[in-house]
Simulated assay, not measured.
Amino acid sequence: MTQEFSASYWQKRYENAQTGWDVGTITRPLKEYFDQLQNKGQRILIPGCGNAYEAEYLFGLGFRNVFLVDVAEAPLQSFAERVPGFPKAQLLLQDFFSLESKYDLIVEQTFFCALHPAQRQAYAAKCAELLTPGGKLVGLLFDTEFQHEGPPFGGSREEYRTYFEPYFKFLHFETAYNSIPPRQGRELFIELES
């Protein structure tokens, strides 16, 4: 990880409320995906979880094996205060790339775009390594280029395919039809199977 995007970099972003990616709630594509999940016992990982509205929603639905990982302490503390019943042992203050457990589902929500593009191939490989056979990587990727220097970093579906194709079967990989208005037409919904 480059120094610029270290744990202290992200901690400062949260402390200074520089969290433009944070929409303050779970986004509709993920909410609708979670609503149709049947197996509440599956192990779910949310990397680069930030304020983790997705975990709060899943926990409210009865999913108890949800694990959050972030390099910044601030969002994990905020989440623990907001959702006091959530198991503290499932709040992981560490680098995603250092994880070693296995999960049935990895939820992608603005973590991929926070990574420097040079880390994208490693991200795809690490997700494949962390998933159980038949496990899924599900979430949203920006399908757009940004006019500013990242993070967030943009990209295209063609680029992303090259990272994920060696490791995953593509179940869904298309423009999200139910994005929030500012992201309409600029997000890919992905469901990839290991």
Rank of each mutant, 00 (worst) to 15 (best):
Q3V: 11
A7Q: 00
S8D: 09
S8K: 04
K12V: 13
Y14I: 11
Y14N: 09
E15I: 10
N16R: 09
Q18N: 03
T19G: 11
W21L: 15
T25F: 10
P29W: 10
L37K: 07
K40I: 03
R43C: 03
I44G: 01
P47H: 02
P47Q: 01
G50A: 08
Y57D: 08
Y57E: 06
F59K: 02
L61P: 05
F63R: 09
L76M: 04
P84V: 14
F86L: 10
L92A: 07
L92N: 09
Q94M: 01
L99D: 05
Y103R: 06
E108M: 00
F111T: 06
F112P: 05
H116R: 12
P117N: 11
A128S: 08
L131H: 12
V138S: 05
G139I: 06
G139R: 03
L140K: 07
L140A: 01
F142L: 08
F142N: 00
T144F: 06
E145R: 12
G150P: 10
F153D: 08
S156M: 09
S156F: 09
R157V: 02
E159D: 10
Y160W: 07
Y160V: 03
R161A: 10
R161Q: 07
Y163I: 01
E165G: 01
L171R: 15
F173W: 15
E174R: 13
T175W: 09
I180V: 13
P182L: 02
P182I: 06
L192F: 12
E193G: 07
